[in-house]
Write a protein that binds this DNA or RNA. Structure first.
Length: 274
DNA sequence: AAAAAGCTCAACCGCTCCTAA
DNA sequence: CTTAGGAGCGGTTGAGCTTTT
């Protein structure tokens, strides 16, 4: 089916945002929220398309965004989650409160990919064999109960609910792993974050890192980690893998499944912090 | 000091998913 | 069931900045 252009191209500004535009957007969302991004720029008096406004807000203006360099822990988290999830930046961002998917994507392409590559060259041979089985079994023991719960329990988070949550100005990143709702400094409803960085210990990071060896890893590890058939499709993860996209095995699972996984991970007994 | 090369990151583009009519 | 439109995601770009030669 044909798609309407996301905005009227004529007369709409592109490129970097000015301070004035930022202030207009902030004050508008502060007052009215953003129930309809498409209509927002017109109502706010901005010569931007709704998509551009949404991006500017979610990636830069949101009050809960953490600026500054990524910590070692955050980088490790990204590396590890990328091992498990592939380029699912928005899902990865859920585990890094205050960080946006765009930011994570950038940091991955500029720093972590290189770091990982260099790390692999040093650990490739020594760790390759025994780590594969060790990591897989450890990861499986950690995640399997969670996944099992997801499979037997009814969905707690429907897509509709998820959308509602993700529409909160506090962002989708923290939506699935929050427990309380408060109000932020802009007067917009906000979920308070809890500490998400405790669900895996150091050895798990390094072992998983060592395990990574080629493109097969992503689908392979996920299969190892989850080790189940998808209940809805009755297809194994490997069978659902699209050759055009190595991450497609994950696509058999909706966002709500990842929400469930992360939500349940939070419920696991606390593990040592970094 | 100047030019070239490399890096960073905000922003855009095109696509898919979901929902409502 | 089909279609249209909104939202969100991931890939990519390019201007500006920094480092190297």
């Amino acid at each position: 089916m044909g798609r309407a252009p996301c905005c009227e191209k004529m007369g709409l500004k592109k490129g970097p945002w000015s301070d004035e535009e930022d202030q207009i957007l902030i004050s508008y969302i502060r007052q009215h929220g953003h129930p309809n991004w498409r209509a927002l720029p017109k109502r706010a008096g901005l010569l931007r398309c709704g998509k551009s406004c949404r991006l500017r807000w979610t990636n830069y203006l949101r009050p809960d965004i953490k600026r500054g360099n990524f910590t070692k822990e955050e980088e490790d988290t990204i590396i590890h989650l990328h091992e498990m999830l592939g380029n699912r930046w928005s899902v990865i961002a859920m585990k890094l409160p205050g960080r946006t998917d765009n930011e994570i994507k950038n940091i991955w392409h500029t720093h972590l990919k290189k770091r990982l590559a260099s790390h692999q060259t040093t650990t490739h041979d020594t760790n390759r064999r025994h780590m594969k089985s060790k990591c897989a079994s450890k990861a499986q023991s950690l995640v399997e109960p969670v996944v099992s719960q997801c499979l037997v329990q009814p969905k707690h988070i429907s897509l509709n609910e998820e959308r509602c949550i993700s529409n909160q100005p506090s962002s989708r990143e923290s939506s699935s792993v929050t427990d309380e709702t408060t109000t932020d400094s802009y007067g917009v409803a906000k979920h308070e974050e809890i500490d998400h960085d405790t669900f895996l210990d150091d050895s798990f990071w390094s072992e998983t890192l060592s395990y990574k060896e080629d493109n097969i890893m992503e689908s392979d590890s996920l299969t190892n980690i989850i080790g189940i058939e998808h209940p809805a499709t009755s297809l194994t993860l490997m069978e659902t893998t699209d050759t055009r996209n190595p991450n497609t095995c994950c696509d058999a699972y909706g966002m709500d499944m990842w929400n469930d996984i992360f939500t349940h991970i939070e419920e696991l007994p606390e593990l040592p912090e970094f």
